[in-house]
């Protein structure tokens, strides 16, 4: 095993007893300091994977080690090094401030340090006004913020975040992601599941796509985009007044042209060298007296990668 490897999973299987495997022989590894994204539809196996890796559920077969501990036998030693933000709501019937404090007590954090951390987290997660509010009086988004904040009461080497930003507004979501990013600079490794592909694109170094308990793809974000989408799309609109736009675009090599179906839509030029295509469009439109109204390189999105990977698996 790579000494830098924090999580090592090999042919892991898990069943809820119905005969069908919720995890059907998955294998992957996570290196120290990495933000590892786990993408998948509802019921794909994301949460089950987290529960097995955090020792909350016992695998049927296969091997999984987390921070050097086997998930079957690691138990408390493993859990003392990790933080877990579960997908399901979890809270004590008390105030926000007391809830953070009690969690700190459970993690053996000294009183002074608890007080310092509580102030820091309440301020960062913008919960100062809610500090004396009882948990059940909070909105869904506030409860989620407390749940994420609570996990930062203690130090850890690996943080499991199971859809941590569900129900949060854009600004808070971005703040949480930035905080996670910041912590990875200090060596924290993050296992992150989400439905939101934009945030996965924003935060993850590497991504695995899981569907029906099987991993369909596992690579760096840029490599996945390259291998699944291949080409970037250049979008261009022209004001032509009878000029031969089609002829001009046909003279650009190595591209596939998708003509606009409705008026106002741009041409789509798909090819391996988007930057070169842009250069040629500008040159040729200027030379042919065609006014270029709008030009854009449309980046490959993770959503396209995801849909292609899942679509390929289904077909």
């Amino acid at each position: 095993m790579d000494s830098d490897r924090v999580v090592d999973v090999e042919d892991l299987r898990f069943t809820y007893g119905s005969g069908r495997y919720a995890l059907d022989g998955i294998s992957f590894g996570i290196s120290k300091g990495e933000v590892f994204g786990f993408l998948g539809r509802n019921g794909a196996g994301k949460t089950t994977t987290i529960k097995v890796l955090t020792t909350l559920a016992r695998p049927a077969s296969g091997k999984a080690t987390v921070l050097g501990h086997d998930v079957r036998h690691g138990g408390k030693a493993l859990r003392s090094k990790i933080g877990v933000v579960l997908q399901e709501e979890s809270f004590d019937f008390t105030t926000v401030e007391k809830s953070l404090d009690i969690y700190g007590v459970m993690w053996r954090i000294q009183k002074k340090e608890r007080e310092r951390k509580i102030e820091e987290l309440l301020s960062f997660f913008e919960l100062e006004d809610a500090r004396k509010k009882r948990m059940w009086d909070l909105s869904g988004g506030q409860k989620r913020r407390v749940q994420v904040a609570r996990e930062f009461m203690h130090d850890m080497e690996l943080l499991f975040l199971d859809e941590p930003t569900v129900g949060l507004d854009t600004i808070t979501r971005r703040k949480i992601l930035d905080m996670v990013n910041e912590k990875t600079k200090d060596g924290l490794t993050v296992f992150f599941t989400t439905h939101n592909l934009e945030e996965a694109d924003y935060i993850c170094d590497r991504i695995a796509i899981i569907d029906s308990g099987r991993i369909l793809a596992n690579d760096t974000v840029s490599a996945l985009k390259r291998s699944y989408s291949g080409y970037k799309t250049v979008e261009a609109s022209f004001s032509h007044d009878g000029a031969d736009v089609d002829g001009m675009l046909a003279s650009i090599p190595n591209i596939r042209i998708e003509r606009p179906v409705n008026s106002g839509e741009p041409f789509k030029l798909i090819g391996p060298e988007a930057e070169e295509t842009v250069k040629l469009i500008i040159e040729k439109s200027t030379k042919n007296g065609i006014r270029l109204e709008w030009l854009n390189i449309h980046p490959v999105t993770l959503e396209e990668v995801f849909l292609k990977a899942v679509g390929a698996a289904e077909s």
Partner: peptide, 18 residues
């Protein structure tokens, strides 16, 4: 019951407690 209902049972068992 309350810990089970409000998720703290699972949360506590994800901490270093048996």
């Amino acid at each position: 019951w309350s810990d089970r209902r409000y998720g703290m049972f699972e949360q506590i068992l994800s901490c270093p407690y048996s």
